[in-house]
Design a protein around this nucleic acid. Structure first.
Lengths: 161, 161
DNA sequence: ATAATTAAGTCAATATGACTGACCTAAATA
DNA sequence: TATTTAGGTCAGTCATATTGACTTAATTAT
């Protein structure tokens, strides 16, 4: 049986149109990560390193635990990536007030790499958004934000407090 | 030195705001793929299998070569995933008119799995978009589409001819 | 003061998705 | 006939992630 919804929903909510959105999301995300990936490759780093650098840069003195909450990977996975970044001088580790915890901070090199990687993405976004008005941009942000699960919306907001 | 652009650009194009968009893209994409991933896990498939099933479903009788063009992976990478899908009865392979080529088609099982996986995503999109008006939705689609590189825009359009 | 919990780390094994490089066959095209 | 194209395969490697088991040190609860 065909979807009854399709009989009453407007054109832009029909299945074929929604599937196009799936594809647009797939292609745009792939292109969005491709730029940084190419830079990381030369350093023998991967996308996982970018994420760590990004969020350590975002939340100075973030703890391992909170970083894991954001990244939603296991500590074993983080361990390898983080140790490489520390060993190669992009991140420093200190002991937190709670002495069980460790806090992370970008070094100057780490800051520079973060800037280099993120600016590829911010430039792409700026260039794209430059062709749209404020209303369109707000709609874009709101819709994308609403596609995030509740728990992760909270994490996003905590990151931006 | 701080970015001179920031002195003249509007609030919503300032670096801090653009960085929020990077995060929203990261979180929303992760949540977008999470649903299908959980279903695939039970079948001992991964996201790569989903992509193959999706695009074979999209373009009936697609050739290996064209599938590789869309996926942008090596034939060795595709080989493993595709062979599993054929062996487990989700996809059938035939010889094309040009007898060097092979064409791919979903079986009934493949169609059902495709539907199951994609409907998780289409439902999520439908639910989210339901709260927005047509203008907002069009802005969302246009901006996301403009973030795709030219070559891949063409591939997207060929898929939807 | 002791017990329980928490934060972090480590060892080992495994899966998935991707890559490079080399090489092969068969069919189509120049 | 020679070259190109479509597809396949073998082998090795790498990156990202997982589960499970276990340890240490510090904090918190009883």
């Amino acid at each position: 049986m065909t979807d009854l919804n399709n009989l009453i929903s407007p054109f832009y909510l029909k299945d074929k149109e929604i599937r196009k959105i799936i594809e647009i999301i797939f292609f745009s995300y792939r292109d969005f990560t491709e730029g940084p990936d190419r830079v990381l490759e030369k350093l023998n780093f991967g996308r996982a390193h970018h994420r760590v650098i990004y969020f350590v840069g975002k939340k100075k003195n973030i703890t391992i635990k909170n970083l894991l909450r954001v990244l939603k990977i296991t500590k074993q996975s983080l361990s390898r990536v983080l140790n490489q970044l520390v060993k190669e001088g992009y991140i420093t580790v200190s002991t937190g007030l709670d002495k069980r915890t460790k806090t992370l901070l970008l070094t100057d090199n780490g800051y520079n790499l973060e800037k280099k990687l993120s600016s590829i993405q911010t430039n792409k976004i700026k260039t794209t958004l430059g062709n749209f008005n404020e209303d369109a941009i707000n709609s874009f942000k709101k819709i994308l934000f609403e596609m995030i699960e509740t728990d992760n919306k909270r994490i996003f907001q905590q990151l931006n407090e």
